[in-house]
Design a protein around this nucleic acid. Structure first.
Lengths: 349, 349
DNA sequence: ACGTTTGGGCCAAACGTTTGGGTATCATGC
DNA sequence: GCATGATACCCAAACGTTTGGCCCAAACGT
């Protein structure tokens, strides 16, 4: 009966279709792949019909290796992230993958752990796989590696973190930092500390800068020793908070530039016998799905992670099409919860 | 000096090397790619040397599309997971990707959201990309889809979840469930409830079964209404716990088959004014990095997620090499923390 | 009637490898 | 002196596409 679309491994090729229809393989190719306005001058509409019909009766799938070989275009893109098990990057990547599929692109993703050597070697592997473009989610603010990479002429875009003037899609991290500053200022916090993330990531840098500037405008200067760098995971936040808590009196509020670091801070506060949202206000950044489920729900800034990934691929696709693109800065949103306002009445009237 | 390895986009091919050395392209191919014992009979050692030298001076990288086209082997594998932003799957995938790279394989990964239609269509896309094999992290226990897929003759292995007799790498979920049962029984809990996860996933099924059997052996039967299915995320756990808490008295302990569901349960308990580890013991499964950082650290069962991914690819590689393989069940480990034993003294003497 | 267009296709050369066969040269065995 | 066997290569076909030309016949313009 009607052709079980390749159930038994018999890869159907253009030549098969051509032979079966007594027509030349180039004709089949044009009919099947050329843009509509070209396809109709490739064959009579009757032939077009016959070809199309047979093609999907037999479940024809073009061989991408042959196509790539011939066209010198692979429709593959490489994606580098610090760590996929970081839910933030995983979510961004979900956006990338989803949008890539829509554009007919496929992606390879790999972890670099923010290690420069791994960035280099994994990029090299991507190139060996003949990717058409790259998305970097692990850019260093110094853009040293990127400057070298740019010279190779392979299109790329940055997501999550910006660097130099390379095209990027980021959250407006600076604005997010300011939002949080305003929020904490309104609550009367003047003695605040920052768990600032890694010094080479624009995310942490910009969020911290926005926060510090927000406080500065209110006439409060945040001392250097109240800002400590940290890894972006829970453990890192824990260590950083320990450091803050051990040097002098506890601040009245802590801003961690990432939800996981904030959760780590929860742990540290707990260990020091301090209650989140009561003794010390804590705020995070990203609004990961856990934030709202924590025993003390976390005040945080929602960053459009999925969308960032999507826009990233869209920019790259434009780049691949030879267009110019301009960086995008997506708008964050403040999510106020109990970790800063206590269980008083954040959402209830 | 000395060949900046392809800085300016000039893809170097076998023919280039051959011409440059006045030797035939096939000779170069054999020297560069044949197994060592064949390569030395392909050319004199002097020639071998010259070829090797020029190849890496020029930074020769074989074109994988040409290779795949010729050999009918892509060294590509497709990976399907329910959701990459689930840290459990992301971690498994990290293992997969890492081990794949070591084996010279590249992976495409995509989310199926446990949706049958997406499983089908995304598998189809993988096939269109001419993958050599598949890894499914989203198997349904009924193996309906897999049975169909198996007929196509494409090698595959399951990770995380098992199904029918298909080769799989899983955690010994049943054992993990029993461990937790024993632990809670020792603490004297007899009135327990289970947040059991999705009914189609072997993980939840086996963990629940181990737990229930553990209790049964101690003479305690867990009532059906004390076991409720749930999604595997925090929100799902929250809803499930709400359901448990609304129907009659609260149990003295809750086992959630997944850490995130457990965190959701934390949220629900909080909303009901119950204290985790004091009023109600809670246990999870997987030992994700957050478990230990929670305000009340979570008792859970550590499953070797990364290793599961690694073993998955290794099995697949063997399958691709034509070998037979047998499923693996990796050993879990109980992690006792405050969510079941309170802040008494779990780790301190 | 005759040159030009257009429709409908065919041809062949790539793209970069791999691989099953040659083949020419030289040394060896007998 | 000649078959035999290495040694060190070369040749060519094939993998499945794409694409710039080419070609033939019919239709058209004048």
């Amino acid at each position: 009966m009607g052709g079980d679309k390749g159930d038994k491994s018999a890869p159907v090729t253009l030549r098969m279709l051509a032979d079966r229809l007594g027509v030349h393989v180039s004709t089949v190719s044009r009919v099947l792949h050329a843009k509509p306005h070209e396809s109709h001058r490739a064959a009579s509409s009757a032939t077009v019909e016959r070809i199309r019909k047979l093609a999907d009766d037999l479940g024809y799938q073009p061989n991408p290796h042959a196509t790539s070989l011939r066209t010198q275009r692979s429709n593959l893109v490489g994606v580098l992230v610090p760590r996929l098990s970081d839910i933030v990057l995983a979510t961004i990547y979900e956006g990338i993958e989803e949008a890539a599929a829509e554009q007919g692109l496929s992606t390879f993703v790999t972890n670099t752990l923010d290690d420069r050597e791994l960035q280099r070697s994994h990029t090299e592997m991507m190139l060996a796989r003949r990717i058409d473009g790259m998305i970097f989610g692990d850019a260093y603010i110094d853009a040293e590696f990127l400057a070298g990479f740019a010279r190779r002429g392979v299109p790329f875009v940055l997501v999550s973190r910006r660097a130099a003037e390379y095209p990027s899609v980021t959250c407006d991290d600076y604005l997010g930092g300011r939002m949080l500053a305003e929020h904490l200022l309104e609550l009367g916090h003047r003695d605040v500390a920052v768990i600032a993330g890694e010094p080479y990531a624009s995310t942490g840098i910009d969020r911290t800068a926005g926060f510090v500037d927000g406080y500065a405008e209110a006439g409060v200067e945040i001392q250097a020793e109240k800002m400590v760098h940290s890894r972006f995971d829970a453990r890192g936040g824990h260590l950083a908070a320990d450091q803050l808590l051990e040097t002098g009196a506890a601040p009245s509020a802590i801003f961690a530039v990432n939800d996981f670091a904030a959760i780590g801070a929860f742990g540290a506060l707990r260990d020091h016998g301090l209650r989140v949202g009561v003794d010390v206000a804590v705020a995070g950044f990203n609004d990961t799905p856990l934030a709202v489920e924590l025993p003390v729900p976390l005040t945080t800034v929602r960053s459009p992670m999925h969308e960032m990934g999507r826009r990233g691929i869209e920019l790259l696709a434009r780049l691949l099409g030879g267009e110019e693109v301009v960086s995008e800065r997506l708008r964050p949103e403040l999510m106020v919860r109990a970790s800063t306002v206590g269980f008083g009445d954040p959402d209830s009237p």
